[in-house]
Design a protein around this nucleic acid. Structure first.
Lengths: 169, 169
DNA sequence: GTTGGAGTGTCAACAACACTGACATAAACT
DNA sequence: AGTTTATGTCAGTGTTGTTGACACTCCAAC
C-alpha cells in the first residue's frame, strides 16, 4: 500500500525507499544487534552477570566519576533496576561509590582495578567484532553506518551519545 | 594500548581503527537500537504484548506458512520461550497454526487478518523511523549501513537474513 | 510389523531484569 | 522551617529467557 516503485518523479534528490528495502534494514538491525551482543553475553553467562551489568560497567568506564543519576539518564532504566545491578557490582568489588565532595548527596562511580579488567575483557571481544566488521566493510561504509545510526537515535539519546563522543578527543 | 594514530604505513588499503573509534561504534549501536525498538515498544506496552511478540509477528508475516522450528532458528531462542509467545498470539486470534499435511509433526504458522493489522501498525512505526533515518543519511550512507551490519552478524544469522532478503524480489 | 531413535511441539517451574509504587535519608536550596 | 533533589531500599508484578520432563509423529533398522 505504501509501496512506491523505483521511478523518480520530482527534481529533488529524494530517496524512494520501498517497503521491502525498509524491512531489510529492520531485519539487518535485528540480526546485527544479536551478533553485536553475542560475545559479551557468552562471557558474562559464566559469571553471575548479565547484559545489564555489562552496560553499567561500560558507561562507568567511559565516564569515570559519573553520578548515579547521570548513569540513569544514559541507560534509560529505573533507579531500582540500576540499583540492583550496582549493588552487586559494588559488593563484588568491581565498582566503587564515593560520596561527592561538593554535593554530598551524589555518589561518584568508578571502576576498581578488577572492574577495569573485566571491562577490558568484555570490550575486547566486542571491539574485535566491530573492528572486523569495519575492516570488511571499508571506510566509506563505516561513515555511512555511523550516519544512519545517529539519525535513528531519539534526540535525547543523541545528546548522551554526543557528549560521550566528544569527551575523548 | 591498542591505540594507533591515523598514520598509514603499508601499501594496502588498511583501516587504522583507534580504540576510541570502535567504542563510538559500539555506543552508536547501543543508542540506535534503543531508538529502533522504541516505537513498537510503546505501542505494545498498551496491549499485553512485548518485544518477543513483535518479533514473532514480524517473521511470521515475512515468511507465511513457516514452521515453528524454522521460526526458532531465525529468532534464536528456545522453543519453550517461543511457544509461550505463540500460545498467547494463537489464543488471541492473531496467529493460526495448522498441522502440516505431509509431515504432521510440523505446525505451519500464518497471521490472521487481525494479526496482519497489528503487524502493519507496528511495522509502520518502525518503517517510518527507518525511512526518516535513511532519508537524512542519504543513499551512500544507507549502503554503508547495510554493509557494516551484514559484516557484524554471525554467519548463521547471515543465512537467515539472506534467505529473507532474497525471498521478495 | 514392531521397535527405537530423531524430530517436533507442549506444559511446568525457575531466573534475570525490566517496571511501578511507596517510603527513608541526607543534603541542598529558598 | 519547608521544599526539592539525589540516592537507596522494600515489595510486588510482568515479560522473556532458561532447563527439565513429556507426548506425538515420522522413519528406518531390525
Amino acid at each position: 500500500m505504501d509501496r512506491r516503485p523505483s521511478s523518480p518523479s520530482s527534481g529533488e534528490a529524494l530517496l524512494f525507499l520501498t517497503d521491502e528495502q525498509l524491512r531489510q534494514g529492520i531485519e539487518a538491525m535485528f540480526f546485527a544487534y544479536r551478533g553485536f551482543t553475542a560475545d559479551p553475553d557468552r562471557i558474562l553467562a559464566d559469571m553471575a552477570y548479565g547484559r545489564a551489568h555489562h552496560r553499567a560497567i561500560h558507561f562507568i568506564g567511559r565516564a569515570p566519576g559519573t553520578t548515579v543519576n547521570n548513569l540513569l539518564n544514559i541507560l534509560g532504566v529505573t533507579k531500582q533496576s540500576l540499583n540492583r545491578v550496582l549493588r552487586t557490582l559494588i559488593a563484588d568489588g568491581l565498582v566503587e561509590s564515593k560520596v561527592g565532595r561538593q554535593d554530598k548527596r551524589e555518589r561518584h562511580l568508578n571502576l576498581t582495578q578488577a572492574g577495569r579488567t573485566l571491562e577490558q575483557t568484555l570490550s575486547d571481544a566486542q571491539r574485535a567484532r566491530m573492528r572486523a566488521a569495519f575492516r570488511d566493510a571499508g571506510p566509506d561504509a563505516v561513515a555511512g553506518f555511523r550516519t544512519v545510526l545517529e539519525a535513528m537515535m531519539d534526540s535525547e539519546m543523541r545528546n548522551s551519545y554526543g557528549s560521550l563522543k566528544d569527551s575523548t578527543p
